[in-house]
Nucleic acid binder design. Structure first.
Lengths: 226, 226
DNA sequence: GTCATAATTTGATCGAGGTCAAATCATCAG
DNA sequence: CTGATGATTTGACCTCGATCAAATTATGAC
């Protein structure tokens, strides 16, 4: 795996992200001090469940999928991380072992933060500790949201919920572009691609238009009721 | 809601729990300083999703269920907390609003820790911050485990996995008592009670005996293969 | 543009698990 | 011990979404 140093642009992406933006400059600099960047092709596996993991990853570009493997080889997505997100942090507090697999969904550039060092810095800086706690909370919430949606909503309802999550409230009509293949969305929602497709066509009756990756909503209310 | 002060026994339960046992005495004392205890009957609702929440709860006795409500009134369990567990901590970092409902599953005694104060203490004490991060990680893992199991395993497999989780490895034959009604286990596993019942009877063929709340395993291997 | 390949959709079938109703079993107050 | 109440199990049925196969539609290399 080829690694590089952090360039100015990468640094800007890091500093502008949710995790770093609230940190004092000194804290950010300390964290980013010896960060390296690694490049990955689509499908590259970044780490494997159960194996030692001593970095926390930041997505500089591309897309990463966290997933678990079943005995039979089937895969269950835990989360999908786009540019600007930090992941792999929970291994830090669980014996430095990955609790899931991670894979690049598309060509990705990742910043690797040494997890021992980050942990040491968190001990010294309450701001870093606080940022980590918020990150952990957000990730815990994401998992709980998924769990609740899986258990409470049908496929079309989950898709409606995903669309609404990408639609500013207040608007009645809205359009946006999926940030990844339908493939990936299906995994994220815990559906087979076929089921996602059928869910979209069920939503067509409620004023949702799908053309390639572009989703158009004509009646927010109708979606909320679904 | 009737509240009491912490008595010596309660204090011992707290200090012996996973969260407090690794903390220095001074830190624990500071946290427990103004803790109050509240008693709840079975079915009592402790807090409601979306409402302000400014305590973190510790289960001194009894059982508490965290769950989300669907539009149609159905409920999805997020977690079940037995004696010795701390919960409600994630609201602390998410604007002091509950992200789920909580209900006593059986008569419960809870210690209430002021969340603002705990947060302030975490800023001053790296040990407390560390303990909180570990707690958040564990809870995130619990949710991810559930999510993965829901997506990868059938009902009998989930039950087998639950049983194995309560069975020390190395043993071939083993017996234990469910810590709660089957009712509750069903919810925790994301199943209707009927489905749990049928799952148990499917496992009977693999050497699992169920008598009331007592589960007996006669062949660990067979369960693992299931 | 044209082809090759990959992504998505559609059709058909099937099985897991939800729901409702009824039967059985436990538990506990008296 | 005896009901009465609640928990669990069983049966019958039905729906949702998985799976497999085939058709269709992008997408990218040339």
């Amino acid at each position: 795996m080829k690694t590089l140093r952090l360039n100015a642009n990468d640094r800007a992406v890091l500093l502008g992200s949710g995790f770093f933006e609230k940190l004092p400059t000194a804290a950010s600099s300390a964290i980013l001090d010896d960060v390296v960047v690694s490049m990955h092709e689509e499908h590259d596996v970044l780490f494997v469940q159960g194996e030692p993991l001593d970095h926390v990853f930041f997505v500089l570009s591309g897309l990463v999928r966290l997933y678990r493997l079943g005995k039979d080889g089937r895969e269950a997505d835990i989360a999908v991380f786009p540019k600007g997100e930090l992941f792999g942090e929970s291994a830090m507090f669980l014996g430095n072992r990955a609790t899931a697999n991670a894979q690049a969904i598309e060509t990705a550039m990742l910043a690797r933060i040494d997890s021992r060092k980050l942990r040491r810095l968190a001990e010294q800086s309450p701001e870093i500790a606080e940022a980590l706690m918020q990150l952990l909370c957000r990730h815990a919430q994401m998992a709980e949201d998924c769990l609740a949606e899986d258990r409470l909503l049908t496929a079309p309802q989950r898709v409606a919920s995903y669309i609404l999550g990408n639609c500013p409230d207040g608007t009645l009509s809205f359009s946006f572009r999926l940030p990844f293949q339908k493939n990936v969305l299906a995994g994220k929602l815990g559906l087979a691609p076929e089921a996602l497709s059928r869910a979209f066509s069920a939503l067509r009756r409620s004023g949702v238009t799908v053309k390639g990756r572009v989703i158009e909503i004509h009646d927010r209310q109708a979606l909320e009721r679904f």
